[in-house]
């Protein structure tokens, strides 16, 4: 139980995907102009990431390892994620039209969201022999929650910044990157917590 708690704290704060591992930067910079959309994206990623952690674990343990196909891991994992994203897209379309429209073009981009693949791969390398099923799922959840926290907080900051009179060459990405850097400074306080 305590090891699961450690995984959660590590995933959300200490090894935050965006703020200390540089995973998922594209959506972090791309979908952080509005808090609501950021939250929606965070939830979509959470859903995909937990499922992906579970499924890639199963595929690795019951397919790749028994047949010594570990070198196919990258290909297998990315295909699984692509299929998952398609499914999420279809479900969202049915369930919440508004959210679907808000996320629109970004949803297919979860496929190339390196955070999802990154978590799936780190599940296999984090400890000797990789996490077990439950640990993988929890790690996926923690990573996604950390991603959502960073994304939503960043979106709120950018909403505030949008009302400022920034120097004009700070508009857009330079300003966003420097703001993200300062945010990362705050996250550094958790270094060594685990």
């Amino acid at each position: 139980m305590s090891s699961l708690l450690l995984i959660i704290i590590a995933g959300v704060l200490v090894n935050n995907l965006v703020m200390s591992q540089f995973l998922g930067i594209c959506p972090f910079l791309g979908i952080s102009k509005k808090t609501e959309t950021a939250f929606g994206m965070g939830m979509a990623v959470t859903f995909v990431m937990v499922l992906a952690s579970v499924i890639t674990y199963l595929i690795r343990t019951y397919l790749l390892v028994p047949f010594s196909l570990e070198y196919m891991q990258t290909i297998a994992f990315i295909l699984v994620i692509a299929v998952l994203v398609q499914t999420v897209e279809m479900v969202l379309k049915k369930v919440s039209r508004a959210l679907y429209q808000a996320l629109g073009v970004y949803l297919p981009l979860i496929t190339t969201n390196c955070a999802v693949l990154g978590v799936a791969i780190s599940n296999t390398t984090a400890v000797e022999g990789g996490y077990d099923l439950l640990q993988s799922a929890v790690n996926g959840l923690a990573g996604a929650l950390g991603f959502t926290l960073a994304l939503v907080a960043f979106a709120a900051i950018r909403e505030k910044l949008a009302m400022n009179d920034l120097p004009k060459w700070m508009d857009g990405f330079p300003g966003a990157l420097i703001a993200a850097g300062l945010m990362a400074v705050a996250f550094q306080g958790f270094a060594g917590l685990i």
Binding site: K160, L161, D165, P167, I178, A179, L182, A186
Partner: peptide, 14 residues
């Protein structure tokens, strides 16, 4: 870096 780049007094977020 922290104050003026973000618009000066009253506009920095840290």
């Amino acid at each position: 870096l922290i104050k003026q780049l973000f618009g000066g007094l009253g506009q920095n977020f840290m």
